[in-house]
């Protein structure tokens, strides 16, 4: 053993806490073998260490877990609503785009047609159509497409909403 070896209280704590290298450990153990009074001190340190291990934990209030879960549930509902709103955004944008397309296209078609043909011919066509012919006119067809698209998008939105609700219900 190194004759200059000096034991200290902190070194004993480091020994008890397992911080020493194997060489330092051997030095301490050799010293303790020759100095029973320091062995007793080590025992005392181990006792205090045990007391530190056994310090009781603090108890939160009884409804703490319930409060955390209530906050978490609120946050989840908030997030769900946010996601739902995000999901609706693209549906609304799609409806607006389709709607715009159906409004603009006939106008463009009519303007182009008006430029290419004479006005009286157009007027004669409109006044002479029966119900069967009317159903085949571009305006009625566009209106049908618009209605159909709107219904399809509404169905898609309902389906997505229903799916996310049933996913949440399985949690």
């Amino acid at each position: 053993m190194n004759n200059n070896f000096q034991i200290t209280e902190d070194l004993l704590w480091d020994y008890a806490d397992g911080f020493l290298s194997s060489e330092e450990k051997h030095q301490v153990e050799a010293f303790l073998g020759q100095h029973p009074e320091w062995q007793q001190r080590l025992q005392a340190i181990r006792g205090e260490q045990q007391a530190l291990f056994n310090v009781p934990m603090e108890k939160p209030r009884a409804d703490f877990a319930d409060r955390v879960m209530a906050s978490w549930a609120t946050e989840m509902v908030h997030n769900h609503a946010k996601n739902k709103a995000k999901g609706r955004d693209w549906i609304i944008i799609a409806i607006a785009a389709v709607f715009g397309l159906f409004i603009l296209t006939p106008i463009v078609v009519m303007v182009v047609a008006a430029l290419q043909s004479s006005a009286p011919e157009v007027s004669n066509q409109i006044t002479s159509v029966d119900w069967g012919t009317l159903a085949t006119t571009p305006v009625v067809q566009y209106a049908s497409y618009l209605g159909l698209t709107f219904l399809t998008l509404r169905f898609a939105e309902k389906w997505f909403t229903q799916r996310s609700v049933s996913l949440k219900a399985t949690v």
């Binding site: 934990m57 703490f64 877990a65 879960m69």
Partner: peptide, 18 residues
Amino acid sequence: GRQSAYAMLVKRYEQYVF
């Protein structure tokens, strides 16, 4: 997404965290 699992984690660690 299982909420009961969150609740069990809270119960298990509430004293440690507090």
